[in-house]
């Protein structure tokens, strides 16, 4: 049986500080991303997602030196993203020892890159990050990179287009929930998972184990990604990286979650 992945998601800023954001706005300094990645690797994290959240805006790519160090200091599967906009960059980043490349903002101007990348490197090497939020009419919109009035689209069609273009996995990041610790968006993930045949990862909102239980009981998505939940001590904004207790709990309880959606 393939286990759902519990994925620490590390965000770095332009100075290569590890930060945590709330609803894409406030930033809280966490510390050194390499040290944190090393610790999560020691915890035997299922996978690590590391994103440079300033890269696209600054029109540059996540630093190769940084990714090289990341791959050197860790032994877990890595997915990296931030400002990646062509095949050459994907090739270089994969060669440094990463498993998957996350694309997002650059797809606004060049959606064809997704298909080209998937054909060249295999769909299992290409992840797409979709930022989603609700509009005034309470329906879900999605965007690559930051939402902007002219590129937002209905989330269902956006996801299906990505799947058809060869995306190997989608990370659905709920902007409204990011950093809130209010729980994942269950109805959205359930609905998307029924429509798509590629792995889906939920990101945004996880604050306690119950949130993971709630979503995995509702729908068999491929993984849950967490920021706050794995970098802060419970009920505080004090930095305390954790993983093993949560991962063991997930393994121990998985069968009972699965039973619920098998019915």
């Amino acid at each position: 049986m393939l286990l759902p992945r519990l994925i620490p998601t590390l965000l770095v800023d332009e100075s290569l500080n590890l930060v945590k954001t709330t609803a894409f706005q406030q930033r809280h300094y966490i510390g050194d991303p390499l040290n944190s990645a090393y610790i999560f690797s020691g915890f035997e994290a299922d996978e690590l997602v590391v994103l440079d959240i300033d890269a696209s805006r600054k029109r540059r790519t996540i630093s190769y030196e940084f990714v090289k160090a990341l791959a050197t200091f860790t032994s877990v599967p890595l997915c990296v993203g931030g400002g990646i906009c062509n095949l050459e960059q994907i090739k270089n980043l994969l060669a440094l020892g990463t498993e998957r490349i996350a694309l997002s903002a650059s797809l606004n101007n060049n959606f064809k890159l997704l298909e080209e990348a998937s054909n060249r490197f295999g769909s299992s090497s290409i992840t797409v990050i979709i930022n989603c939020f609700k509009d005034e009419e309470d329906s879900y919109l999605g965007s690559f990179g930051l939402p902007s009035t002219n590129s937002n689209r209905k989330i269902d069609q956006l996801c299906i287009d990505c799947q058809n273009a060869g995306a190997g996995e989608l990370i659905i990041n709920n902007i409204n929930l990011e950093g809130t610790k209010k729980g994942y968006d269950i109805s959205l993930m359930k609905s998307l998972n029924q429509k798509l045949s590629i792995p889906l990862i939920a990101l945004g909102g996880c604050g306690q184990l119950k949130h993971i239980e709630d979503i995995l009981s509702a729908t068999p998505i491929s993984g849950v990604a967490c920021g706050s939940f794995l970098v802060y001590a419970p009920n505080t904004y004090q930095v305390l990286l954790s993983y093993p207790d949560k991962s063991s709990w997930l393994k121990a309880n998985l069968t009972s979650f699965n039973k619920r959606w098998d019915k």
Binding site: M1, L2, L3, E47, G168, N193, P199, P220, S222
Partner: peptide, 14 residues
């Protein structure tokens, strides 16, 4: 069963 079994097959399996 594409609800439960996704492709690519990514992750940890026994």
């Amino acid at each position: 069963n594409s609800l439960k079994y996704k492709i690519p097959h990514i992750g940890w399996n026994y």
